[in-house]
């Protein structure tokens, strides 16, 4: 198999910026290494990709005494770009497909036009299939 066809699957459940940054960094690195990436958005990550939410919600999931604003300062100190800018860059540089769990889309009453970067809606069977076909699957 050509290296360009080697695939990594990332299943993203969380929608908080500390975890979305993890997703974005791994995607960036995978693209740099010439892997193709399939990202599957589940419940909370689908919410985070909504056009009316993306870039506006800086909630973090852990260290709850740490405010989102304080966390953004930490990221700025580290020179770490916002997660959605990294995803945009990854999609420009490589093969990154972003899929939404159809149930999650339904739960948020979100159509494709309501979601940033998203390519399509998929069923859970395709998520399982993609994971089985990938070299590696990350769950975030």
């Amino acid at each position: 198999m050509e290296s360009e066809e080697e695939k990594i699957t990332i299943v993203v459940f969380s929608g908080t910026i500390d975890r979305l940054i993890g997703m974005a960094i791994l995607t960036n690195a995978a693209i740099a290494m010439d892997y193709t990436v399939d990202i599957f958005l589940m419940l909370w990550s689908t919410y985070a990709f909504k056009k009316d939410i993306i870039g506006k919600d800086n909630t973090i999931s852990e260290h709850l005494d740490f405010t989102g604003d304080k966390f953004e300062e930490v990221l700025k100190t580290g020179g770490i770009s916002p997660w959605y800018e990294m995803i945009k860059q990854s999609r420009e540089m490589g093969k990154v497909k972003i899929h939404v769990c159809s149930a999650a889309g339904k739960a948020w009453s979100a159509e494709l036009k309501d979601l940033e970067f998203v390519d399509d809606f998929v069923g859970a069977g395709e998520i399982v299939w993609s994971s089985a076909e990938s070299k590696t699957t990350y769950f975030i």
Binding site: I31, A32, D34
Partner: peptide
């Protein structure tokens, strides 16, 4: 030098 990981790697690829 101004990039955080994995920025330099992406820059190298580009």
């Amino acid at each position: 030098r101004a990039e955080s990981c994995p920025g330099p790697l992406l820059a190298a690829k580009k």
